[in-house]
Design a protein around this nucleic acid. Structure first.
Lengths: 278, 278
DNA sequence: AACGATTTGTTCGTATGTATC
DNA sequence: TGATACATACGAACAAATCGT
């Protein structure tokens, strides 16, 4: 046992069977008792091997049922830059990001998938930390927060929260504090209501571990193995002032992003998955 | 024990002490024996608690030494879109991405940090998978691969591999297969040598777990935590043809990205870290 | 260079709790 | 309800890495 600990030998054996397709996605592994006998190891050693595989995200255990090979999720690809063709009708001065021009549902339908989202959950909060800093308002100033949960093909896909200065409401944008969708998009609504033109935005992309609530919503393991994209989008008006901060959380196991710069042909060869190798 | 398993109670306690700063980054946790006594638990239970924290990336264990709170690294922020101001001299038709216009070293110096990189490691390979698909060349066609390791402040920061069609070399771009840096940048070199203008590029951003070699280079844990940005950049010439594919790997714990769209003021309030909260 | 003390790593055995069918 | 399967917890022993003497 100088080289390889027994639990890793067992894990490697199972791993090979998974890679070879001998154990297909969704298939049940031998029970711990069976593995004990096959490898003449103790139950705890077998469990160490399985633990390693769960950490690697290859299998998942279900109490009372067994251990199963995980089914991989087909990732959804979002484009962070606007589409090349400007909208025919509508204010040409508005720079619309993805999900801001046409509806979320339409975008997802383009990839032949079904989307769904909850009604916005509206709150009035005090700005703090990143919110006040990115929106360039003092800490403690009031902001409207609009929160939505989004699903694709029935699975939880992203969590989005947008923050607007409370000013906007007092200046007349009353629908910001209605707990219902703004059909034409808040960008167009704020342009029409307050004359705010969204002339650009900046996305700040980070990755972090989910907290307990986020892990529950996305159905992720609690151990921080799978992480979340956290994208802060700061939108700017014609005066260079931040008008909106949107924070969206996307599990990294089911989301990917595209950024187009300059003149590029239509996207191609961006597959769902299964080749992240050289 | 209906509510909280003991190992998680122990983990939560340690976690709180870490969050409170009672256990500072780099500090050593109590030894397993001490934790056994403090919580009157068995060694295996204590070890389960530590395992959980390890999975969360909060602590690391060093055999023969102890368990330590991980030191967080100050993240480096890269901008994926070009800077607003075009270069004064130089071909105005070239769209230069970050690291393609001025040198990597200069960019990093702007953030008051020191960079370093290895000489490129050049190989001739056969294109396969994502490479052939994104470069739009047949599987098995020959490509030049140029690989570099990059460091910031002495720590390994990113791994970059660029792929060019072998054609380029036979057509005269001989410096592509020299194992030394191309000072003015390969974008300018190919423009001068072959008349290829880089008029745009597309970045495809994914996150995945490192393999063994990558984990070793970046000094990341070998468990299957998804902790690497993998960004494929496909560059296009004036004919809309892909001329280059660059794959760069960035550990998510020390890298963040910005994307600027439309008219945006200078970056501000994009802090290093420690506030990823609402 | 050798040794011992300390600390984590691996493995076994066993018992009991909890979830599912 | 019982059978099955995973989850938690305890105790014990030895191995391997590290550090100081």
């Amino acid at each position: 046992m100088i080289a390889e600990p027994k639990y890793r030998v067992i894990a490697d054996d199972l791993r090979r069977k998974i890679d070879d397709g001998e154990l297909a996605p969704g298939a049940q592994l031998p029970t711990e008792i069976e593995l004990m006998e096959q490898h003449s190891a103790s139950r705890n050693t077998v469990r160490d091997a399985i633990k390693l595989l769960t950490n690697l995200g290859l299998v998942e255990t279900r109490p009372g049922q067994g251990t199963f090979v995980v089914r991989k999720i087909e990732p959804y690809v979002s484009t962070l830059t606007p589409s090349n063709k400007r909208e025919p009708e509508g204010d040409p001065r508005l720079i619309l990001g993805p999900g801001e021009g046409e509806t979320y549902r339409l975008e997802v339908a383009k990839q032949l998938r079904e989307s769904d989202k909850t009604e916005p959950q509206v709150e009035i909060k005090k700005a703090s930390g990143s919110i006040s800093r990115l929106l360039q308002i003092p800490e403690g100033a009031q902001v409207v927060s609009r929160h939505q949960e989004r699903y694709i093909d029935g699975t939880p896909w992203s969590l989005e929260t947008s923050y607007y200065p409370m000013d906007f409401v007092t200046k007349g944008a009353l629908r910001l504090i209605q707990a219902e969708d703004i059909e034409e998009g808040t960008v167009r609504y704020l342009a029409a209501e307050l004359g705010l033109q969204q002339v650009g935005y900046r996305d700040w992309i980070t990755v972090r571990a989910p907290d307990a609530a986020e892990a529950t919503f996305f159905n992720l393991p609690q151990d921080g193995r799978v992480s979340l994209f956290q994208i802060f989008r700061t939108a700017f008006d014609q005066d260079g002032k931040p008008t909106r901060l949107t924070r969206t959380l996307y599990p990294t196991d089911r989301n990917q992003f595209l950024v187009n710069v300059g003149k590029v042909p239509e996207a191609n060869g961006i597959p769902g998955s299964d080749d992240q190798d050289a």
